[in-house]
């Protein structure tokens, strides 16, 4: 991963709501690829609204570029809504898992202190390994990784993509969907309508 302090660009979080159809991820990623934008993190899951998927993508860009990228994404037929935010507008989280040696874990007394300090927790412990979990911002999960690496050593490490919600009242999508339903209702005059 590139050193984040080196870039003059800003980290943007792109949030996309889409229909759950095959090939959508490709449609989205080619829009980044065409502009040589590197995706830092990516997370996809069903949203609160049935049948609608939510993508959370982070990328370093300038605002002019991210604005154009989001418009291009929003234009795709199966995308319901795409927008971008900076960290100030969001509550966001990443989750990280750390695999440690059980033998060293028991031998060294320092890990308990780290678990407390970082508010991490133990998910699994067996004869060979201990798995810690820590959720937080990138800097937080990274700090624990660094400290563990320098002391006990980390056998395996994995971090999820960012998940984020806006600090505003509701998901903007629900307003949009309601408005579309109203429009459809007005337009509907006995014609069968299939999406």
């Amino acid at each position: 991963m590139e050193d984040r302090s080196m870039t003059t660009k800003k980290l943007y979080t792109v949030i996309i709501f889409s229909e759950n159809t095959v090939g959508l991820l490709n449609q989205i990623t080619i829009i980044f690829t065409r502009r040589q934008l590197n995706i830092e993190t990516l997370s996809v899951s069903p949203s609160a609204l049935p049948g609608i998927h939510k993508f959370t993508i982070t990328t370093f860009a300038d605002e002019d570029m991210i604005d154009k990228v989001v418009k291009q994404i929003d234009k795709r037929v199966d995308i319901l809504k795409a927008y971008y935010n900076t960290d100030e507008d969001l509550v966001f989280q990443e989750i990280a898992l750390y695999k440690l040696s059980t033998e060293l874990f028991i031998k060294m007394g320092t890990v308990e202190e780290l678990i407390r300090k970082y508010n991490a927790r133990i998910l699994e412990m067996n004869e060979t390994c201990v798995v810690l979990e820590k959720s937080g911002h990138y800097e937080e999960t990274q700090a624990l990784f660094r400290e563990l690496s320098e002391t006990i050593g980390v056998l395996q490490f994995i971090r999820s993509g960012r998940v984020a919600i806006t600090k505003s009242r509701v998901e903007r999508l629900s307003d949009m969907l309601a408005e579309m339903e109203r429009k459809l209702e007005r337009r509907r005059n006995g014609n069968p309508i299939n999406g």
Partner: peptide, 11 residues
């Protein structure tokens, strides 16, 4: 025949 004239995600 099913005429499509509305797609929720396409305005």
């Amino acid at each position: 025949y099913k005429k499509v004239d509305y797609i929720r995600s396409y305005q």
